[in-house]
Write a protein that binds this DNA or RNA. Sequence first.
DNA 1: GCCAACGTTGGC
DNA 2: GCCAACGTTGGC
Length: 140
Amino acid sequence: MSRNYWLVKSEPDAFSWDEQVVNDVEPWTGVRNHQAKKNLAAMKKGDRAFFYHSNVGREIVGVVEVVKEAYPDPSAESESWVCVDVKAVGPMPRPVTLAEIKASPDLAELALVRQSRLSVVPVSEEHWGILCGMGGWVEK
DNA sequence: GCCAACGTTGGC
DNA sequence: GCCAACGTTGGC
């Protein structure tokens, strides 16, 4: 299957992986950055994304799947911000920490590392595979 | 259009 | 709590 891969960030104090699991499907709202918005808009149904805890934890904790493509963000007060709906696929058997990612030469080009402030970033298929390996994730 | 000031994000 | 990166705002 051809799908694209992403990584989305959330501060667990605001919205955590546990909440994602409880809610199952959740609109990914609140993106107010044009580049992140571009990435959201490029997501297709069936694409998968790592769920990353920023600030507290700083690790990849799970995998979500896009179940609804970009539509106007209801939490946006104005204009053209968008969100997508994502569904919890499963937790990382072993969370992959930012420290581990930074320690891996193979992941030096990862957008998470290169553009640390961007909350929605693309992940290449190669990087996806590496990170899955590190986290013990088996594609399902 | 340039650039300084300022705010926000997020790692450390 | 500090600071780097970077986006936004506003004066000129």
